[in-house]
Design a protein around this nucleic acid. Structure first.
Length: 491
RNA sequence: UCCUGAGUAGCUCAAUGGCAGAGCAUUCGGCUGUUAACCGAAGGGUUGUAGGUUCGAGUCCUACCUCAGGAGCCA
């Protein structure tokens, strides 16, 4: 077998090798046989292609080797690339030679079947499940989402400053944190957010972001929760809430645009309806929709360039607009407007439980609200009482926090949570005390308000929820190579 | 922590309280254009665990274990 004489190629690049004899290195994904004609399907990590092996066209050895080969055996195959209308990808491989690297034993066949399988079984075999085309496609899209997210900040003047993963204590209690011994008598906790630390780096560097894993020991068992997940968090000095909303719009728009540009075929394998994603990044039409008018009024305020003081002097934020110049506005609702929408829906019998004014929104509430729009919806100014201690009160109504939750469309729920931060030393100190948090542990955080405090804002986006939404998945466990959930830490 | 549901062949699932079954996978045989191929045959079982009711339990009862979906909480 002269399998190494032909040039190496990947399946994804076969269109460029039509008519040539090439070598592929990969695995046997499936095998069909029809008498003296074999149809092996090869995969190599970049895609799959069907090979054609007529008994009369190859040596007895090659035919028998392939005929008896087991699924997921590793191999090197040589063949000629030929366009064929019958092939899903448009190309087939006329096999000329094959070299088996390792044959999967017949008595221990590859456990992941092409037919249906249950969640428990698949998760128990996650290390092998990853080989299936759909799972591979999801991981490729995830990689692009992570790259595009970092790229958006990298090209807009942000400096990446990653916070520690081991932290001395919680920012909001320790019950949701993973605890571990830290030498002698100390305890350490796995971070649940780098926010407090990047507030410090933002005041050092202006515009910063962090990107890394975070951990929550919440006993949540839902399609939206992992105990270990990745979060990307920007934090910007001299940025107020309205600017933060624009930042989130530009950020999400860039990510979705990039995925649509680079992963059409992967999204097709995953089964994603890309029209829903096109709608997200479509330039905002001028309409009479009240929430759009509201958002334009607000952004007009915040865009006032040298206007009302240092608070609006966020540097270069115009650079975060889409390069095309076309504005992509997401609908914006205040907490009160969202509550009114839910009241209306309850009155019409569209939701089962009535939302109580002053309470946070539940999952069914978020699902209803986001289903009213084809773009992500931004809900701002929640009651301070149900939000974190570090959120700046709205000067117009101090009972409201200058915060925002971004809900993904199609019922995917919250993917971004952010706020303008308290910048007054005295207010922050009283908030820490009111929340019964240990003042000593927050001394460094209070220092940030003592030495040149400025208005500043930031948000965090959970990568897995964003991937689940963009890929149209029904559970975040498929968005990360090895999901960590309440009941599973294997493999 | 609470609510709901599910555990039967390697996988996905059937089985009125009365003989433990099918499809896929595996093995063997057939088929020169198959698209999760198809056709024929074979092997494959401590019905999650421990008790209980009954002439008889996969099926009914109790406890426990495991998993799933949801609530709360969050990204």
């Amino acid at each position: 077998m002269q399998t190494t004489s032909a040039p190496l190629a990947t399946i994804a690049s076969l269109a460029a090798h039509e008519g040539q004899t090439i070598t592929l290195r990969g695995w046997l994904y499936n095998l069909r046989a029809s008498g003296k004609l074999l149809f092996p399907i090869f995969r190599d990590g970049t895609g799959t292609i069907q090979g054609i092996v007529p008994k009369a066209a190859v040596s007895e050895e090659v035919f028998e080797t392939l005929k008896n080969l087991t699924l997921e055996s590793s191999l090197i195959v040589t063949g000629k690339v030929r366009a064929d209308a019958r092939a899903p990808s448009g190309f087939e491989l006329d096999v000329e030679g094959v070299e088996v690297i390792q044959k999967v034993p017949e008595d221990t066949p590859f456990p992941i079947q092409l037919k249906e399988a249950g969640v428990d079984f698949l998760m128990e075999h996650r290390h092998l499940w990853l080989r299936t085309p759909r799972q591979s496609a999801i991981l490729r899209v995830r990689a692009t989402i992570m790259r595009a997210a970092a790229e958006y900040f990298d090209t807009n003047g942000f400096t990446r400053t990653d916070p520690p993963i081991l932290t001395p204590n919680a920012c909001e209690g320790t019950s949701e944190l993973f605890e571990m011994d830290y030498f002698d008598d100390d305890k350490a906790y796995l971070t649940q957010s780098g926010q407090l630390y990047i507030e410090a780096t933002a005041l050092a560097l202006g515009k910063v972001y962090s990107f890394g894993p975070t951990f929550r020991a919440e006993k949540s068992k839902t399609r939206r929760h992992l105990t270990e997940f990745w979060m990307i968090e920007p934090e910007v000095a001299f940025l107020e809430l309205e600017g933060l909303l624009e930042l989130a719009e530009g950020f999400i728009t860039h990510i979705v645009t990039t995925v649509l540009a680079q992963h059409r075929s992967d999204l097709k394998v995953i089964g994603r309806d890309t029209e829903k994603l096109e709608a997200v990044v479509a330039p905002t039409p001028t309409t009479n929709n009240s929430s759009v008018i509201l958002s334009e009024a607000q952004s007009a305020q915040s865009k006032d360039p040298e206007g009302s003081g240092p608070a609006n002097a966020a540097p270069n934020l115009s650079a975060t607009k889409p390069a095309s110049g076309a504005a992509n506005k997401f609908p914006r609702l205040s907490y009160d407007e969202a509550h009114a929408m839910l009241e209306d829906a309850f009155a019409k019998g569209l939701i089962e439980t009535r939302h109580k004014d002053g309470d946070d929104f539940g999952s069914p509430d978020e699902t209803y609200i986001s289903s009213q729009f084809d773009k992500p919806v931004m809900i701002h100014r929640y009651p301070s009482a149900i939000k974190a201690f570090y959120m700046q009160p709205d000067p117009i109504d101090p009972s409201r926090a200058l915060c925002v939750d971004v809900l993904a469309p199609e019922g995917y729920g919250e993917i971004i949570g952010g706020s303008q931060r308290v910048d007054s030393y005295d207010l922050l100190k009283s908030r820490i005390e009111a929340h019964d948090l240990p003042l000593a542990a927050f001394q460094w955080y209070l220092d940030l308000r003592k030495y040149g405090s400025v208005p500043h804002s930031g948000f965090g986006m959970g990568i897995e929820r964003a991937v689940a939404w963009i890929c149209g998945l029904d559970h975040v466990r498929e968005t990360i190579p090895f999901a960590r959930t309440l009941n599973r830490i294997y493999p």
